[in-house]
Amino acid sequence: MNDDTLLGGWLEWLPSLLDGLWLSVRLAGASLVIGIPLGLALALLMSARHRWVRVVAIIVVEVGRGTPALVMLQIVYFGLPSAGLTVGSFVAAVVALALTTGAYTSEILRAGLQAVPHGEVEAASALAMSNRDTLRFIVIPQGVRIAIPALLGFAILILQATALTFTIALPELLSRAYSIGSNTFRYLDVLLLAGLLYLLITLPAGWLTNWTERRMARHL
């Protein structure tokens, strides 16, 4: 099929771009699944009693937040093989985006943990609950719940950040769009379709984030 019309081109390119979109979604999902628990761990470490633990956690977070995701991708993709670890593009992208996710979500989750009413902690202490149980059953569940809207918003940003992985030869949505554009010289048409496919995910996700924020504001 070789149709020079906009619709004809879109129909021809759509299967390849959908495969790329699915890869982008999988990449974002894997990065969030790994990165959010990492962010929670860093948030807890930044509130640790030992000063040196707090300092190390803060340094890790500041380095992660201060390093652009594109630079992190290059460091992981080219750095791990130099250290003797051979990884594919997908694994390298997951590691890099998970590290970025952990650094940014640590601040989101720390704010959520600090927003837990102090009276809840005092009540747990009055019931003779240990600090670990208070953290496990009261502070973390409520803190994470408070942070959910912000985490959903950040998940949208991570999906958009997967477009950066075209620089390490991962065949996600943007990479496939560029490949089609280089073969057909119809960059505007194919990038327009790629943008619409991103919107199919990000617009409903944005609506879900706003709805969740409004709903939770009623109960917090």
Rank of each mutant, 00 (worst) to 15 (best):
A147Y: 05
E172I: 04
I180N: 11
A169R: 07
R110E: 05
E122T: 04
Y104V: 00
P117G: 12
A147G: 03
R186V: 01
I168K: 14
R136K: 12
A96Y: 02
G143T: 06
P68G: 12
T165S: 15
V91H: 13
F166A: 09
L164D: 06
I146S: 14
E172G: 06
P68H: 13
A150H: 02
Q114S: 07
S106D: 06
F185R: 02
P141I: 13
L174D: 06
A103N: 00
G181F: 08
A126R: 06
S106C: 04
I108F: 03
L188G: 15
Q114K: 13
T86L: 13
L99Y: 10
T105P: 02
A83L: 10
L70P: 00
P171D: 11
E107M: 03
N131I: 01
A93D: 09
L164I: 12
I168N: 09
E172W: 03
G143S: 08
H118Y: 05
D133Y: 12
Y77N: 04
A123V: 00
G181Q: 07
L170Y: 07
T100M: 02
T67D: 01
L97N: 04
V144S: 03
S89W: 12
V139W: 04
S179Q: 11
A169D: 15
A126T: 12
V71L: 10
V76E: 04
P171K: 09
A98D: 10
A150V: 09
L109K: 00
R136V: 06
E107T: 00
Y77T: 04
G143R: 01
A111H: 07
A169P: 13
Y178L: 14
G119M: 09
Q74L: 15
R186C: 02
V76L: 14
G66D: 05
L170M: 10
T101D: 04
F154I: 01
L173I: 06
S182R: 07
I168Y: 15
